[in-house]
Design a protein around this nucleic acid. Structure first.
Lengths: 208, 208
DNA sequence: CTATGTGAAGGCCTTCACAGCG
DNA sequence: CGCTGTGAAGGCCTTCACATAG
């Protein structure tokens, strides 16, 4: 890695990887930076800059070898020949939906547990998983070797649950609770906030 | 509006608004740019710059009036004294979860319809809504005066469904399908791609 | 004396433009 | 001759620092 990889670049690496997967399924051998950019909604210069951070993947006059590039990017993203073990905390609408959605499994994110504090939910089955009692959190995280957690609990429980998970050894969080979580500096945290997304739409509808 | 409002600023306006709502509930009257920044995970300078785009909301020596500022920001975001009518297309795991999640209603996003093409789902009840037949799309969009649509259909149907919706008059889309949708320039589109989010976590776990 | 509002500086990301490779 | 890789330029966003208001 020659330079710092920006958040924006990481985001696009994901999109390139997915689009290259589609091309691979359609048995396309080579793709130009121009077409690859078009496929994910950016331009050729951006594509070449992004890829040049890591290596010289392309062949002047031909473009990028689709299959080779997809594998290399998947490796860079950490999703080639590898599975991440994920726990979902909060078996509400959203937590349930994530577990039932199969694409993540295919992409190397394996859901190994779903936890809740509601005794009416504990023991019930969601997809292939049985809802576990949140008071068993630490034991489950350790025995299941959970590395990534999804926070889909109500706002008022989110920070506490996150603290417990950090203590139990979880290193990365995808947070759906609409609150600013505080985590130690070595912990990876990304927020998905659907209200923010809706309000983004609303702002542009009103101001354009 | 004195200058162009960046995407990043719009995002933070949402976060400020939410945090100010919490402060309002706790009956806090004034907040400094420093504390407001801390509350959403940014700094005082950023807060002051963001807010100064629109007006002089603050009182030197005291800070910002919480309730007044919250209302003004909600107005700017288009969620004060107003309801947006939203349709969800695709009654799978995710579409169902969104309709059952009540926070959006409170924030001014009112779900008025959920559509699917699966005859096994059509007519069934999800929350307060009955799943409608997607072949009635145009009629429903017009009669329900839908302005915003959520795309939660499989990738292969996403573009077609979006085209139909644009034609029927929908002006804004929140797209959960992992595909780059093409829409006319005057249409507002935001993508929520959970695979990208997971891969973002993965990248940072591997490279730090 | 505290905390805002804002030009200026700094830093990061994107776009340009072209040398050079296949 | 087409398309990549990459310095340079441009543009946008964040941070700094301080004059100014309450």
């Amino acid at each position: 890695m020659k330079r710092k990889v920006s958040q924006a670049t990481v985001h696009r690496l994901s999109l390139y990887t997915r689009y290259l997967g589609e091309l691979e399924a359609r048995e396309v051998d080579y793709i130009s930076s121009d077409k690859l950019g078009e496929g994910i909604g950016t331009n050729a210069a951006q594509v070449r800059k992004d890829l040049s951070i890591f290596d010289r993947f392309g062949i002047p006059g031909r473009g990028y070898p689709v299959s080779f590039l997809r594998k290399r990017l998947a490796k860079i993203l950490g999703v080639e020949d590898r599975v991440w073990r994920v726990a979902v905390v909060g078996a509400g609408c959203l937590g349930t939906a994530l577990v039932c959605y199969s694409r993540f499994e295919k992409q190397g994110f394996h859901f190994v547990a779903i936890l809740d504090n509601d005794s009416a939910k504990i023991g019930t089955r969601i997809g292939k998983l049985e809802v576990a009692d949140i008071s068993d959190l630490e034991r489950i995280i350790r025995s299941e070797k959970v590395e990534v957690a999804v926070i889909s609990v109500p706002v008022q429980n989110a920070q506490q649950v996150t603290d417990l998970m950090v203590e139990a050894g979880v290193r990365a969080f995808l947070n759906f609770a609409p609150v600013n979580l505080n985590v130690p500096p070595h912990i990876v945290l990304r927020n998905v906030d659907l209200t923010v997304e809706f309000e983004g739409l609303s702002f542009h509808l009103i101001n354009h």
